[in-house]
Lab assay of single mutants.
Amino acid sequence: TETREFDNEEEARKEAERLRRKGQDVQIRKKGNRWELRRT
């Protein structure tokens, strides 16, 4: 599992969408005042 953190939700969602188009399974969750993007 690979995780990346983003400062805002929009960036996290854009990156998640990009990875999903490549066929990756991605989850986003709020972590304090940041957003965590998890690739499984």
Rank of each mutant, 00 (worst) to 15 (best):
T1Y: 15
T1D: 12
T1W: 15
T1S: 11
T1M: 13
T1G: 12
T1P: 13
T1Q: 11
E2P: 09
E2N: 10
E2H: 13
E2W: 14
E2T: 11
E2A: 12
E2V: 13
E2M: 13
E2Y: 12
E2I: 13
E2D: 11
T3M: 11
T3F: 12
T3E: 07
T3S: 11
T3R: 10
T3D: 07
T3A: 11
R4D: 07
R4L: 14
R4E: 09
R4K: 11
R4H: 10
R4G: 05
R4A: 10
R4N: 07
R4S: 08
E5L: 14
E5P: 03
E5A: 07
E5N: 07
E5G: 06
E5D: 09
E5T: 12
E5K: 06
E5M: 14
E5S: 12
E5V: 14
F6E: 00
F6H: 01
F6P: 01
F6C: 04
F6Y: 10
F6V: 01
F6S: 01
F6R: 01
F6G: 01
D7R: 05
D7N: 06
D7A: 08
D7L: 07
D7T: 08
D7I: 06
D7M: 07
D7V: 06
D7P: 06
D7S: 06
D7Y: 07
D7E: 10
D7W: 06
D7Q: 06
D7F: 06
D7K: 06
N8H: 05
N8V: 05
N8M: 04
N8D: 10
N8Y: 05
N8I: 05
N8T: 14
N8R: 05
N8G: 04
N8Q: 04
N8L: 06
E9R: 07
E9L: 14
E9H: 07
E9A: 05
E9W: 15
E9Q: 05
E9P: 05
E9F: 15
E10K: 08
E10W: 12
E10G: 07
E10A: 11
E10N: 08
E10L: 10
E10M: 09
E10S: 07
E11V: 05
E11D: 14
E11Y: 03
E11F: 03
E11S: 07
E11G: 04
E11A: 08
E11W: 03
A12T: 03
A12R: 00
A12S: 01
A12I: 02
A12M: 03
A12C: 14
A12W: 00
A12Y: 01
A12V: 04
A12H: 00
R13K: 12
R13A: 08
R13S: 08
R13Y: 13
R13L: 14
K14V: 10
K14F: 08
K14S: 10
K14E: 13
K14R: 11
K14M: 12
K14H: 10
E15Q: 04
E15L: 04
E15P: 00
E15T: 05
E15Y: 07
E15R: 02
A16Y: 12
A16K: 04
A16I: 03
A16P: 00
A16E: 05
A16T: 02
A16G: 06
A16Q: 08
A16V: 06
A16L: 10
A16D: 01
E17Y: 04
E17N: 09
E17D: 12
E17A: 11
E17F: 03
E17V: 07
E17G: 06
E17R: 09
R18H: 09
R18W: 05
R18E: 09
R18F: 07
R18M: 08
R18T: 05
R18D: 07
R18Q: 09
R18I: 09
R18Y: 08
R18C: 13
L19E: 04
L19M: 12
L19N: 03
L19A: 05
L19Y: 06
L19P: 01
L19Q: 05
L19K: 02
R20L: 06
R20M: 08
R20P: 01
R20E: 05
R20K: 08
R20T: 06
R20Q: 08
R20N: 06
R20A: 08
R21S: 13
R21D: 11
R21E: 12
R21N: 11
R21V: 09
R21T: 11
R21W: 06
R21L: 12
R21H: 08
R21Q: 12
K22V: 11
K22I: 13
K22Y: 09
K22L: 15
K22A: 14
K22P: 03
K22H: 11
G23F: 03
G23Y: 03
G23H: 04
G23Q: 02
G23L: 02
G23I: 00
G23E: 01
G23M: 02
G23P: 00
G23V: 01
Q24C: 14
Q24S: 07
Q24K: 06
Q24M: 14
Q24W: 15
Q24E: 13
Q24G: 06
Q24R: 05
Q24T: 08
Q24L: 14
D25M: 13
D25V: 13
D25G: 07
D25P: 08
D25N: 12
D25I: 13
V26H: 03
V26R: 00
V26W: 12
V26D: 01
V26P: 03
V26N: 02
V26L: 03
V26G: 02
V26Y: 09
V26Q: 01
Q27Y: 10
Q27W: 06
Q27K: 07
Q27G: 05
Q27F: 08
Q27P: 00
Q27N: 07
Q27A: 09
Q27H: 11
Q27M: 10
I28P: 02
I28V: 13
I28Q: 00
I28N: 01
I28K: 01
I28L: 10
I28W: 02
I28F: 02
I28C: 05
I28T: 02
I28D: 01
R29K: 11
R29Q: 11
R29T: 13
R29N: 09
R29Y: 10
R29D: 06
R29A: 11
R29L: 13
R29E: 10
K30R: 09
K30A: 06
K30V: 05
K30E: 03
K30M: 04
K30Y: 03
K30G: 03
K31F: 03
K31I: 14
K31H: 09
K31W: 00
K31N: 13
K31M: 07
K31P: 01
G32M: 00
G32Y: 00
G32I: 00
G32Q: 02
G32A: 01
G32C: 03
G32L: 00
G32F: 00
G32K: 04
G32P: 00
G32V: 00
N33K: 04
N33E: 10
N33L: 04
N33S: 05
N33T: 04
N33V: 02
N33I: 02
N33D: 14
N33P: 15
N33C: 11
N33Y: 02
N33F: 03
N33M: 04
R34S: 06
R34D: 13
R34C: 13
R34K: 10
R34F: 09
R34A: 05
R34N: 11
R34M: 11
W35H: 04
W35S: 02
W35D: 08
W35G: 07
W35K: 04
W35P: 13
W35E: 06
W35L: 03
E36P: 03
E36H: 02
E36R: 00
E36N: 00
E36G: 00
E36A: 00
E36M: 02
E36Y: 07
E36F: 05
L37F: 00
L37Y: 00
L37W: 01
L37S: 06
L37P: 12
L37K: 06
L37G: 07
L37D: 13
L37H: 03
R38W: 10
R38M: 14
R38E: 15
R38F: 15
R38I: 15
R38P: 01
R38D: 14
R38S: 14
R38V: 15
R38H: 15
R38L: 15
R39A: 15
R39T: 15
R39W: 15
R39Q: 15
R39Y: 15
R39M: 15
R39V: 15
R39N: 15
R39H: 15
T40F: 09
T40E: 09
T40G: 10
T40K: 09
T40R: 10
T40W: 08
T40V: 14
T40A: 10
T40L: 13
T40D: 08
T40Y: 09
